[in-house]
Amino acid sequence: MADNDIILDVRSISKHFGALKAVDKVSFQARKGEIVGLIGPNGAGKTTITNLVTGELRKTEGEVYFKGINVSRMQPFQIARIGLTRTYQVVKPLQGMTVEENILVGSLFGRSDRQNDLNHAKKTAHEIMELVGLDKKKEFKVSDVTLPDLKRMEFARVLAMDPEVIFLDEVMAGLNPSEVEESMELVKNIRTEKQLTIVYIEHIMKAVMGISDRIIVLHHGQKICEGSPTEVCDNPAVIEAYLGKKYAKEVIKS
């Protein structure tokens, strides 16, 4: 694969909270159109990495390049404007607004090098609501919709921002198996349709394995393994650290 395909290049970033090394010299890259799974046990530093890359936390060291631009010192809104964004593990809806307005804010702001007057943004928002199946709930206040719908709304809001790279932070937590299935289909379809690069953070193993082109495993803030889903599953260090023997066997069987 040629080097100019690399859209996101994370170079040895660290975050220390006092003596605790929440993230320790982690490097990884993502290519255009790829889905990269980011997994690891609780406290492995997945969400912290997201916060570091999107500029919400200040890095102790290391640099992040996005489309060849050094975004290490930028604020979140500047990074979002050039096309790198994220969803939140704990949903952060815009309280007091309707579902439609939430998504509209995404399409109004987000990437700045596109047409984004109010009418055009409304049209984009409506298209995306239809795409993710929220069109019937558009007039609801966010306080009146269920958690799966909120997660869907956050995903829609991020899509409305017209990004090139998305960090999806546990968008499926709290969903039941059929909803997970549905959500996986949605993510896959949208990736092909919109030519997105997705960094996919998830606890549900089945989802990560089924969706990712490549998986990065974190443990205690360090990258311990990187490779295709099958490679990762075969790696003894990963099995030890994270998957647990029972699940590893299941994977091998199937």
Binding site: P76, F77, K92, P93, L104, V105, F109, M161
Partner: peptide, 21 residues
């Protein structure tokens, strides 16, 4: 558009920032 930015700040300032505001 600016007004939506204003209202987003009340709704959730961190989310607003990460959305490009």
């Amino acid at each position: 558009k600016f007004g939506y930015g204003i209202r987003s700040i009340k709704a959730n300032e961190d989310a607003a920032n990460s959305m490009g505001i």
